[in-house]
């Protein structure tokens, strides 16, 4: 008789259930109408089933986004869990689409589903990749721009996981500042 360990047939549960959203820029529709929920998952196996099934970010048309958020949080500033929050922002050069975009986005996803930020993972709302002709962006969104300890810990771990060199600075910006900025740059509340 063969003994089968539970490891062989029970999927590995994640701490959180996650929802993957897709945004396609169709100017004839409203912003919200362009945002579609693709699927939700709450196990390691189902994460990969979804990830392996969809296009890499570098294959998306310009103007598209993927958003991975905890179930119950909508990927927009207005959500109750986002409105006092902000994001660690990674801006990529055009050359980095080929070299880094897919690698950075997968690393971001693994940080989220694996709860890489320890107790401060509770502050994480989700992550977004924006595919844009002028330069792609990846960000991790957190719930409260006043939670300095959580934000700095998340930023340090994230920068390390992406392999960003120490001399390169990444910044955290509040959504309020991003929404009300007048120029093309938003001031950083924190940097690591």
């Amino acid at each position: 008789q063969e003994i089968v360990s539970p490891e062989d047939y029970i999927k590995h549960p994640l701490q959180n259930r996650w929802a993957l959203w897709f945004f396609k820029n169709d100017k004839s529709k409203t912003w919200q109408a362009n945002l579609r929920l693709i699927s939700k998952f709450d196990t390691v196996e189902d994460f990969w089933a979804l990830y392996n099934h969809i296009q890499l970010s570098s294959n998306l048309m310009s103007g598209c986004d993927y958003c991975l958020f905890k179930d119950g949080i909508e990927p927009m500033w207005e959500d109750e869990r986002n409105k006092r929050g902000g994001r660690w922002l990674i801006t990529l050069s055009k050359q980095q689409r080929r070299a880094d975009l897919d690698r950075f986005w997968l690393e971001t996803l693994l940080c989220l589903v694996g709860e890489a930020f320890d107790d401060h993972s509770d502050d994480v709302c989700g992550a977004v990749v924006n595919v844009r002709a002028k330069g792609d962006k990846i960000s991790i969104w957190t719930t409260d721009f006043e939670n300095k300890d959580a934000i700095v810990h998340i930023g340090q771990v994230y920068k390390d996981r992406l392999g960003v060199p120490p001399k390169v600075i990444i910044g955290y910006q509040s959504h309020t500042d991003t929404a009300t900025k007048s120029g093309s740059t938003t001031k950083n509340k924190f940097v690591v």
């Binding site: 994640l14 701490q15 196996e45 693994l110 694996g114 996981r161």
Partner: peptide, 20 residues
């Protein structure tokens, strides 16, 4: 505690056959 999974553990499941 939290269910934390490190990157190598997670990556190990990318091409596993689906559970029955």
């Amino acid at each position: 505690g939290k269910r934390q999974y490190n990157r190598d553990f997670l990556l190990g499941f990318q091409f596993m056959p689906a559970c029955v």
